[in-house]
Design a protein around this nucleic acid. Structure first.
Length: 325
DNA sequence: CATCAGGGCCCTG
DNA sequence: CAGGGCCCTGAT
């Protein structure tokens, strides 16, 4: 589908705002609903029954941030739609996050302060709706990066829609209603394996109104956690990502998966990943050092590591061994 | 060729 | 609460 109408709005994130470190997350697996180059992110969005092509352009600096957001659509959009969309984007992309206290708190942390300075103004975020993030979480489970990429791409091609705008062709996600009628066998044909059941059941929960993203946003962290864990196929690992990225819980850090355990052991204790530090010890360490901002601090450390990996010619050997592509 | 574990989660005992 | 099974894929 070709998107022909274009509207432009200006967004003013709260300073400090690091555009590229926010709009590009090298630890995410590549997916065809978005594209990035320095200073620009393209992102499709399925929202309020419109298929949208977004383009974020950096027109400011870390200290004086400004974004030009172009919104492509098939139908002409009225100003109330644009206003509501701006509110939603501001929430999802965390544009008003106040990092003052966080930055002050770790200014004198010898090991962490340099990373903080380097990525000053970066924030975790979700580019997606909760439903879409859950789909991403499901295709991440128990497989290699390449397989996650293939599964999501197959789902896009089967249930999503490709949008042409600004010389890009990118896919949007489907709505829960659009995949709800398909059978588990149809999904399995896309090689998602046993995840078909999770996709079906999470989708059904949205169609039946058992879960509502906007309502959840106003609830407590424990209520959010419980609601997510109630979904079939969604466990502690997926929930920890979602609580941080989607619901902005900056101190959410209750779970360390085996591969993360190896990476933290190497980073903070310089331990051979073959003989990692125990999860209990890691949790105690993060508790003491980053209390109040555990998820946010870990995000900075994690992104720093993956930026080095992706945007630097010299590979980090021990890390390469832990990432199966 | 066969075997195995992976950026989890569910279910069972 | 530990451990087996699950789909498929690439590595060995």
């Amino acid at each position: 589908m070709k998107l022909t109408h274009r509207k432009i709005v200006e967004l003013c994130p709260r300073a400090p705002f690091n555009f590229d470190a926010t709009m590009r997350k090298p630890d995410h697996f590549p997916s065809s609903d978005n594209a990035w180059q320095p200073g620009i992110r393209w992102q499709t969005m399925r929202w309020n029954s419109e298929q949208l092509g977004l383009k974020f352009e950096n027109t400011g600096t870390v200290g004086e941030p400004n974004i030009r957001l172009s919104i492509w659509s098939k139908n002409k959009l009225d100003s109330s739609f644009i206003d509501a969309l701006t509110v939603e984007v501001t929430y999802r992309y965390n544009l008003q996050l106040d990092l003052t206290e966080f930055n002050r708190r770790f200014r004198s942390d010898l090991k962490f302060a340099p990373i903080l300075r380097k990525w000053r103004g970066m924030r975790p975020l979700s580019y997606s709706s909760l439903y879409e993030y859950l789909m991403i979480a499901i295709v991440l489970q128990n497989c290699t990066v390449r397989r996650s990429v293939n599964m999501l791409q197959a789902l896009f091609e089967h249930y999503g829609m490709s949008l042409a705008y600004d010389d890009k062709v990118l896919y949007t996600f489907w709505l829960p209603e659009e995949i709800d009628q398909s059978t588990e066998d149809e999904l399995r044909a896309l090689k998602v394996g046993y995840r078909a059941k999770s996709i079906k059941r999470v989708t059904a929960a949205f169609v039946n109104g058992q879960i509502d993203e906007l309502a959840l946003r106003t609830q407590s962290r424990d209520e959010q956690r419980a609601a997510l864990l109630r979904l079939y196929g969604i466990g502690p690992q997926s929930v920890s990502y979602i609580l941080t990225d989607q619901f902005h819980r900056w101190d959410e850090f209750e779970h360390v998966s085996p591969w993360e355990q190896k990476i933290y052991s190497k980073l903070f204790f310089d331990k051979n990943p073959e003989r990692p530090v125990s999860v209990a010890k890691l949790l105690r360490f993060f508790n003491r050092r980053f209390a109040g901002y555990r998820a946010l601090a870990v995000h900075y450390i994690w992104e720093d590591l993956f930026w080095k990996r992706t945007h630097r010619s010299a590979k980090i050997d021990w890390l390469e061994k832990l990432i199966r592509l």
